[in-house]
Write a protein that binds this DNA or RNA. Structure first.
Lengths: 214, 214
DNA sequence: AACGCTACCGTACTAAGTACGACGCCACCA
DNA sequence: TGGTGGCGTCGTACTTAGTACGGTAGCGTT
């Protein structure tokens, strides 16, 4: 238990958000998780905003850093897979990205390692910016879609798609119906499997950019 | 003014969110925008959740639909550019994606048109799923990053980056510092310009996937 | 002995979402 | 003509948030 600390407050906040969602993260629920009264929390953080900033920063800290100088493709792949896993563990973090302004040390270190990996791989400064934007857009966007899905895991899609499909005749939205019928609702389908396929396509694109025009 | 309606309620909700952010969208602020008292709103929607679902659906309706059968690349490009513009107008919509479950007709039409475009372009069912996931991940992710940026437009980055850069010595985060110094903070830099570059790389990737393995 | 610091808490104010029960107006029928 | 029922609107009040303000108890310093 120890005398509480900013760190413990943030760790508890992450735990509450993971278990019960961002909406359930209130000063009161956080205080309860910590075994103290609400106002006590305010001795370690100034506002709730600061808590939100803090937990996003701590989530960034969980992402595995790429090592500049090693095989760039392997390092960036590792980072992307790790980031996606982290956002899957903490889906609420994506919704918080918008509200943040000041990056903390974990974010800065993260950016520096990724940029360094691209630079040492031979990407020009301008190409590094292009590559980074493309790669992160893909990772964030995939994580966002995954978080937005109302189901998770193999075969879960079918039970969600079924009732939706029944709200309209088969000839309306026929392409959508076909995809659902012949792929999404088939046993074994898991949206999560799309990640690595798209990631490799993006990494291929980066490889081609590496020596392209500025 | 007319006797109010669900449509007008949703339009007003979008306006409030656009102008003052998602947090400022409350039943009270919405009622004020409509010129009525709070409880009146509840004659057109059951809960605030329904309002949130409704405005996301209306945002989806703003995205230009691709036309299946025409040049696939051009159609998908048009749709992506339009989607990105829509999310830029309504950045709050991205944060709402996670909370939605039941897609409305606008979303269904949208998905159907996009899937149809891919299918008629010769993508197999499985490849269509791959391609769609990749393309939308990129678009959503880019939009999310753009929404998270604390600045907007050319040259705005410098004034934001400057104070951050000064919080650490130049030799810490040296790669990040280099990129900032030699690119981001240079006059004329605009993150928005990255979009089309990455989009074309993604479309190239799709073109290669078109006749690839399943 | 007085002071002040650290960790914590009680009370209360304000802003939200929304349940519940009215109230005024109008079309329609007797 | 007078009722009557429904529709759009609203007043009041309850509940759950964030958090300002002002404590209090325990302990070390001078």
């Amino acid at each position: 238990m120890s005398p509480l600390s900013r760190e413990r407050v943030l760790r508890a906040a992450v735990a509450v958000a993971d278990e019960r969602g961002l909406n359930a993260l209130t000063i009161r629920s956080l205080a309860q998780e910590l075994g103290v009264k609400p106002m006590t929390v305010y001795h370690y953080v100034a506002t709730k905003e600061e808590i939100l900033d803090g937990i996003v920063e701590s989530v960034f800290g969980e992402i595995e850093l790429p090592v500049p100088g090693r095989d760039w493709r392997e390092e960036l792949r590792k980072r992307a897979v790790s980031a996606r896993a982290v956002f899957r563990r903490h889906p609420w973090a994506l919704a918080l990205l918008e509200s943040r302004t000041q990056p903390g040390p974990a974010s800065l270190r993260h950016h520096d390692a990724t940029i360094g990996t691209l630079r040492l791989a031979g990407f020009s400064v301008v190409m590094t910016a292009h590559a980074y934007a493309l790669l992160d857009s893909y990772v964030y966007g995939f994580a966002l879609q995954e978080a937005a899905l109302p189901f998770e895991g193999p075969d879960a899609a079918a039970s969600v798609a079924e009732p939706i499909m029944e709200t309209f005749p088969d000839d309306e939205y026929s392409h959508l119906a076909e995809l659902a019928r012949e792929h999404i609702m088939r046993p074994g389908y898991d949206f999560a499997d799309e990640f690595e396929f798209g990631l490799d396509a993006v990494l291929d694109a980066l490889a081609r950019m590496r020596h392209g025009s500025p």
